[in-house]
Structures are given as C-alpha cells and as structure tokens.
Simulated assay, not measured.
Amino acid sequence: MKLILQSTISCPACGHTKEETMPTDACQFFYECEKCKKVLKPKPGDCCVYCSYGTVKCPPIQGGKNCCN
C-alpha cells in the first residue's frame, strides 16, 4: 500500500488551509495556523492534527495502526 504524505490542514478558527507534508516517523500533536496563529491540537480520540484537521489521515493510520506510537 502506498502512503499519501500530503494533507491539507484546515484551521477551524479562521478557515485558512495549507498543504503540508506529514512526517512518517512521528506524530504531530501541535500545528500553528500561519494566518491566525491559533495552535491546533488533536481532537479527542485522534492521534494527531492531521487526523483531526487534515484531508488525509496520518501515515500510521493509513497503514492500519491504531495510533502514531
């Protein structure tokens, strides 16, 4: 299975979107919106900001793992 490493994050505070490359070796727990500077954190039950606010789930979830651990 080929992993998708690009995901577009949408800020829930201001609606700004940006395409980012997801790390394959670690979770990203915090993400600062470049427009409004709000620091995003994963929603309850999600392992990272990409799973909560991205268009594509993080690589470990894509690969069938339960979380980024």
Results as ranks from 00 to 15, higher is better:
M1N: 08
K2W: 01
L3S: 10
I4G: 10
L5H: 07
Q6I: 12
S7V: 12
T8C: 03
I9Y: 08
I9P: 07
I9N: 06
C11P: 09
C11S: 11
C11E: 11
P12F: 09
C14L: 08
H16F: 13
T17S: 12
K18I: 08
K18E: 15
K18L: 14
E19Q: 14
E19N: 12
E20L: 09
E20F: 00
E20V: 14
M22L: 06
M22S: 09
P23D: 09
P23H: 08
T24E: 14
T24D: 13
D25L: 06
D25S: 12
A26T: 13
A26K: 15
C27L: 03
Q28G: 00
Q28E: 11
Q28S: 02
F30N: 05
F30P: 00
F30A: 13
Y31A: 02
Y31W: 15
C33Q: 03
C33H: 10
C33K: 01
C33G: 03
C33M: 09
K35I: 02
K35V: 12
C36L: 07
C36Y: 04
K37P: 00
K38C: 06
V39F: 04
L40C: 06
L40V: 09
K43P: 07
P44N: 07
D46H: 07
C47G: 02
V49E: 03
Y50A: 03
C51Y: 02
C51I: 11
C51E: 01
S52G: 05
S52T: 11
Y53L: 01
Y53N: 03
G54I: 06
G54D: 07
G54A: 10
V56Q: 14
V56H: 14
V56A: 12
K57M: 07
K57D: 13
K57L: 04
K57S: 07
K57I: 13
C58Y: 11
P59S: 10
P60R: 04
P60Q: 08
I61L: 13
G63M: 15
G63H: 14
G64E: 09
K65Q: 15
K65A: 14
N66F: 07
C67R: 06
